[in-house]
Each structure stands twice: as structure tokens, then as C-alpha cells.
Design a protein around this nucleic acid. Structure first.
Lengths: 208, 208
DNA sequence: AGGCTAAACGGACCGCAGTCCGCTTTCTAT
DNA sequence: ATAGAAAGCGGACTGCGGTCCGTTTAGCCT
């Protein structure tokens, strides 16, 4: 017997076959082109497959679903954004005081979310990505809130601060209620200051 | 000439023909049965039409789209809920102090949203209904915040407090992160107290 | 080189949302 | 009662997301 297929120890998921890798490239390129060129709604699975010169089944093999494909497109900019939060220049990146970082975080997130609005909507709640993106942001906000000396249920507080930055809320405000972006940003600043400052005045309206 | 068709003065939208009314009834009944019986995802337009004994086109004539149909189903419970906010017993209805009403509002909204989660998701952002529902809740929260002496951008503050009660956030928390509902409710209480109490300590962390 | 296997491929196929248009019913005015 | 017109109706049709399965191909082992 000869049982060793590439040291399965810690191999994680097996590597990708060369044709598969080539097709994933071609598909991402095709999808990107379609988005830039005709808008998100023109990105049908058939169109992407045809443009990449592969069969439809292949698209589904690489990216679970249409939402998965959109999530993959989003991945580039999302990763770049995370990097600039983790190691970019202040005040978004490390180096500024926590409150300034938090406010910069909010502004930045509002802007990126609005920029990729259609894509985010199309990506929906595509399991992995949505969860990863959310949990990164939530982790960061939890960290900053703790730095700021906030007590209480910090995980849920973080989620609550993040909720008004979700694309569905932002689009309601900008597209339907015609609220200018900088007003939304100022209002988030205010919200954050209110939440954080409560810990500077304990016993305000009931213990927590 | 004989031009008077039922006093168009203030007539609003013309009344419904009797067969149309009958069919709308039948369709709502069929849809409700399907939801109770097989779940929301079993409510296909063909199934509803067939069960009501009408053609598919008729479904679309009455309710713009699938989302519109779902919104119509939601309408019953939504209206009842609005009534209990406007004129039900305290603390949700009028009579209790504003803070108690606000906290009761949050708990009630969390529970109803979770109860009708699938339906709300299926109804999506179906123009009219979603907007009406949101704006009712927003109006109520704006009113209570004002009563509580909150200063600042109250409209957006209200939206920000409502955002964590949206179904997409609640389902993330309960279904994926396994957070128990009463913890979410307590966290919202805390959030509201923080936001409101900031006005009791002006100059907290920067003017607004 | 040659062959073996697992992975990848492609496109026919299915179900459902939404549209379209020729036919039928209701209502009203005579 | 009856005729005319507007509103309603129904189901065939289109387009898209997603699945399935017989065929092809890359990578490895001898």
C-alpha cells in the first residue's frame, strides 16, 4: 500500500487543479467587467459563464451561488479596507486615541458601504462572507469600546452601533429620505458619544 | 353629454369590482393557509393562484409582486400592533411615562419582528408597506425621545435606535450567534438609557 | 509513456417570478 | 332589457437561479 497524497497533515483544503484556477480567474474577470460595464443587475450567471467561455455549472462549482459570486467580488475591497483599519494611517488605523479611531471607523464604513451598496445587497447574507465581514467590524468596535472604558454588554452594544451602518438602513436614508451623507455621519458621531459618555456618569438612569 | 361616474370629487381610487374583491379575499385566504400549513417558502405565486382557483395574472393584478403579497399578509398583524401602540394598555400604549413606553416598545417590537421573521424577510423592501411600517415606528420613537428631553438630530437618532431591532440584525443574533432574546432586550434597554441619559449630563464628551 | 482516479466541466433541465395579450365579466347609461 | 366600455381575467411565455449527470481532463503512480 502507498498512502500519502501530499502530506494530509495540516494540509487544510486540497489545492486547486490548474484548470480550475484558470477558470476562477476568468470568471472573476468576466464578472468584474460586467459590473463595471453594465451594472450589478447585468451579472447573470449565464452571462458570466458565457463571457468567461465556460459552462454554467463551472460558475456554481467555484462560487456556490450568485450571492457567493458577488461576495467574492466584494472580497477585494473588503480586505483592503480591513487592512487599512488594522495597519493603515491614523485615525482609522492604530495610533490615534480610541474615540477618534471609532469615529473615523464609522465615517469610513458609511462611505465604503454606500460605495458598494448594490454589490453588498446582491451578495445578501451569503453565509461565510457576510459573517466574516460583520464579525471583523464587530470585533474592532468591541475592542475600541473596551478601550474607552465602556461597561455593560459590550458585544451587543457593538452590534447596536453597527446596525445603523448597515446598507439597508443607509440606503433608506440616502435614497428614500434624501438625507445627506454628512448628516448621517454627524448623527453617528453623536450616537457614539452618547453611548460612551454614559460610563463617565454612572448611576445616570438606573444601574447597569 | 353625461359625464358623472360616481362623483369623482374626493372619490380617491375608484372602488373595486365585485369579482375583484372576491378574488382578493380568496387569494389572501389561500396565501394564509399556505403559510400556516407549509411555511412561507411554499407560497409560490402559482400555488396561491391555483389554490384560490384563479389565474396567475390575477395574483399580480391585486398584489404587485410576491413581496407585495407578503406585505399584504403582514398588514393584519402590523395594523393590530400599531393600534396597541397608539391606544392599547400601558406601558406600550399611552398612560405610562415616556421611558417605560419606550422600553416596552423595544421589547414588543423585538418579539413581533422575530415572530413574523420569515414573512418580513419575504416581504423585503416592498415599497409602500416597508416604508409605512418604518415610518410609523420612527415617528413614535421620535415622539418619545422628544418627550424625554433628548436634543440633537432626533430623526436620525430614532432610526439608529430602530436599526438594531431590524429583522436582519435580530436573526443574525438569535439564529447564528445563539444569543437569547431576553439578553437582546436588556441590551436595548441599556442602549436607550445611555442615549437618553446623555442629555441629563450636557457637555459630556464634546458639544452637540 | 500509459493508465487510473478524482476532480472539473458543460449544458440540458427544472421551478419560480414576472409579463403580455386576447377573451370574459361587471357596471352603467339609455 | 341591452349595449358599450372599462376593468378584470387567465394562462402561455420569457428569463434567471440553481441542479444533475454523462463526459472530459489534470495530476499522479507505475
Amino acid at each position: 500500500m502507498s498512502e500519502h497524497r501530499s502530506l494530509p497533515l495540516l494540509g487544510g483544503p486540497p489545492p486547486e487543479r490548474s484548470d480550475a484556477a484558470r477558470n476562477r480567474e476568468a470568471l472573476l474577470r468576466a464578472a468584474t467587467d460586467l459590473v463595471d460595464h453594465c451594472g450589478v443587475e447585468a451579472v447573470t450567471m449565464d452571462a458570466v459563464a458565457a463571457r468567461a467561455g465556460v459552462g454554467k455549472g463551472t460558475v456554481y462549482r467555484r462560487f456556490e451561488s450568485r450571492e457567493g459570486l458577488m461576495a467574492a467580488l466584494l472580497n477585494h475591497s473588503e480586505t483592503a479596507w480591513q487592512a487599512s483599519v488594522l495597519s493603515g494611517p491614523p485615525p482609522l488605523g492604530p495610533g490615534a486615541p480610541p474615540m477618534e479611531r471609532l469615529l473615523a471607523f464609522g465615517r469610513s464604513r458609511i462611505e465604503t458601504n454606500l460605495k458598494h451598496g448594490d454589490l453588498i445587497t446582491a451578495a445578501g447574507h451569503s453565509g461565510a462572507r457576510a459573517y466574516a465581514a460583520m464579525s471583523f467590524a464587530a470585533m474592532h468596535v468591541r475592542y475600541l469600546l473596551t478601550q474607552l472604558g465602556v461597561h455593560g454588554d459590550v458585544p451587543i452594544l457593538a452590534t447596536s452601533l453597527l446596525a445603523p451602518l448597515e446598507i439597508v438602513i443607509l440606503q433608506q436614508q440616502t435614497h428614500i429620505e434624501q438625507i445627506p451623507v454628512d448628516r448621517i455621519e454627524r448623527a453617528w458621531d453623536d450616537l457614539v458619544r452618547r453611548v460612551v459618555s454614559a460610563d463617565a456618569h454612572p448611576g445616570a438612569a438606573g444601574r447597569r
